[in-house]
Amino acid sequence: MRKFVSPARNLAFGLAGTFLFAAALVVAPPQAVGKADQIKAQSWSFSAPFGMYDRGQLQRGYKVYKQVCAACHGLRLVRFRNLGEPGGPEFSAAAVKALAAEAEVQDGPNDDGEMFTRSGRPSDAFVSPFANVNAARAANNGAYPPDLSVMAKARVGGPDYLYALLTGYKKAPGDMKVGEGMSYNPVFTGGQIAMASPLDADSVEYTDGTPQILENYAKDVSAFLMWTAEPKLEERHKLGFRFMIYLFILAGFLYMAKRRVWARLKH
C-alpha cells in the first residue's frame, strides 16, 4: 500500500503526462509539402517568443515585392493602410498615401453608371496583377502565380520555406529532364517550378546600405510576406508576455491556497 503520496509527485506525473502527450503529437506533423531537408531554419527577428519584426527589413521586403513579385503575385488581403500600422513596416502616413497612389484602382459605378479607375487610397486593398485565375494562367504559360497574402503560413517551414525556395534555384542534375518553360528548384514539390528565378544581385536598389545580394532580397521579402500573413504578430507576442506573467502569478497563488487548505487534512 502507498503510505503517502505527495501532491507534488502527483502533479509532476500529471504534467509529465500532459507534456508527453503533447510531445507525441509533435512526432506526427503533417506531410511536408516541400522537401524538408532542403529547408534550413534561418534566424528571424520575429521567431522568438519576444520577437518583433525588423522595420527596415519589412520596408526593404516591400520594395522587393513591389518591384519583382507584384508583377505576377497579388496580396489581396493586404491594404495600403496596413503598411503604416503599428507592428508592420510602419511607413509614414505620407509614404503610405504615396504608395497607395501608385496603384490604379477600379471604382464605381459613378453617377453615369460607368466604372472608372482612380489612383489608390490607403483604405484600398493591394490590386492583384491579374483579373482572375484564367487571365493569370493565360499570361504565365498555363501556370497560376498564387496570391501571397498568407503564403508564409500555407507552407511547412513558413518563411524558411520561402527563403529556401527563392535561393534554391540550381542547375538541374544531368539525368533530369526539365520541362519547357520550367526551372529546376529542388525545394519545390517535384523539383520543377514554372517561376523562373525571380531575384538576382542588384536587381532592386537598397538605399539603407544593405548589400544588394540574392540572400538579402530573399530574406527581406520572406520576412515581409510573414508580416502580410501574420500582421498582428507583434501585438500577439506583447500581449502574450503580459498574459503569461499574470497566469504564472495566479498559478502560484492558487497553488499556495490549495496547499493551505489541504494542509488541514492528512493526505
Partner: peptide
Amino acid sequence: LKDAYALCLFVILFMGFVFYAP
C-alpha cells in the same frame, strides 16, 4: 482550489499555443 490550480496550469499550456505557436 485543486481544480482551479490545475486549470490555471492547463490554461498556461493553452495560451502558450495561442500566443507563441498558434
